[in-house]
């Protein structure tokens, strides 16, 4: 084998946690771990990747890589694969990562496992566990190729500190401005003090039982006390109380935090698909028959307008 390459994710110097998760996971496989960082002025990040086990850091620096763009990144990766023959290249299953991986896989006419939640790698072959039907079933898929290609779901692999050399090397730059065919006109970050839904250790969600923005405010107070991400069921998104990017479930996001708190959510099958793999689940709902209680470690039959503020007071003590 010639190494497991991890294409790390960073924006303007902020390294996403999934990068460390993937490096830590790759370390367990035993092959040499190479963190691949694209960007401008990113060499200084090498020490960060080394802390989690990157034996080498491939620093791909050029003006053309300042922001993610499909054409230049894929052209560069094709050239590097030819030069270094990695055994596997793993990407994060993110907005940019899945675009990069899918486009690369097609260029190489190879298979690709996207959104993997478990990884087994050997020479020229990978077995990846994927959740299908938004988590209602699990599929193990075999991907062969040189390299083996996959995207990894953020939040499923554990971050394990473990220092490695992190020796920097800089490949020849093969991509040019002529490879760029998209223009990013703007990127406006979502202004939120809360963590990203798919990366949060705690998620607090509000559903139909919130009855409106006032109910959502109560749920937000609990979320902020727990340093949690805010989420919602389809009912609260369709009612316009929360933006679609906060929807948990089959046509929204699949989350797997340490703790999921469902407030006023009955637990339709589409919603359960998006959160059932959480380690701990708590639910507050007025309906004792609500399906959410079937998956809850701790269920409270009660009115969230009463229970949640009291819970907040108790937790503050």
């Amino acid at each position: 084998m010639a190494g497991t390459w991890i294409v790390v994710e960073q924006r303007d110097g902020n390294i996403r946690k999934v990068s460390y998760e993937m490096i830590s996971e790759a370390k367990k496989i035993g092959d040499e771990v190479v963190a691949v960082v694209f960007g401008k002025g990113v060499e200084g990040q090498a020490a960060e990747y080394a802390k989690y086990g990157a034996d080498k850091v491939c620093v791909v620096e050029d003006d053309v890589f300042a922001n993610y763009n499909t054409g230049a990144f894929v052209a560069q990766m094709v050239a590097m694969i030819k030069e270094y023959s990695p055994n596997a290249v793993l990407f994060a299953h993110t907005f940019n990562g899945r675009d990069f991986a899918s486009r690369l896989a097609q260029k190489l006419e190879q298979g690709l496992a996207t959104d993997a939640i478990a990884i087994q790698l050997s020479a020229g072959k990978g077995i990846f566990t994927r959740s299908i039907y938004a988590g209602k079933a699990l599929a193990k898929v075999e991907v062969t190729g040189s390299p083996v290609l996959a995207t990894v779901r953020p939040g499923v692999c554990e971050v394990v500190p473990g220092a490695a050399a992190g020796a920097v090397f800089k490949p020849a730059i093969a991509a040019t401005a002529a490879d760029v065919y998209q223009t990013v006109k703007s990127f406006v970050p979502t202004v939120s003090a809360r963590p990203e839904l798919t990366e949060a250790a705690v998620v607090v969600s509000g559903g139909r039982g919130c009855k409106g923005p006032d109910g959502i405010k109560i749920v937000e107070q609990l979320a902020d006390l727990l340093g949690a991400a805010l989420g919602g069921s389809r009912a609260s998104i369709d009612s316009g109380w929360l933006g679609h990017e906060l929807q948990v479930g089959q046509t929204g996001k699949v989350v797997n935090p340490n703790l999921y708190v469902a407030c006023g959510i009955s637990g339709a099958i589409q919603h359960l698909a998006g959160m059932s793999s959480s380690k701990y689940i708590a639910a507050v709902n007025t309906d004792t028959e609500a399906p959410i209680f079937n998956v809850s470690d701790f269920g409270v039959v009660g009115d969230l307008f009463k229970v949640v503020p009291m819970l907040v007071d108790n937790l503050k003590k």
């Binding site: 699990l138 599929a139 809850s296």
Partner: peptide
């Protein structure tokens, strides 16, 4: 096709745990 499905399974069914139907202050505590 390039990718082969080698196994299909259903996720382990999550078991219901504690369920409290009591006064809100007791339940919240």
């Amino acid at each position: 096709s390039k990718v082969k499905i080698v196994d299909l399974s259903l996720p382990a069914a999550k078991q219901a745990g504690i369920k409290i139907d009591d006064d809100p202050d007791v339940a919240a505590a």
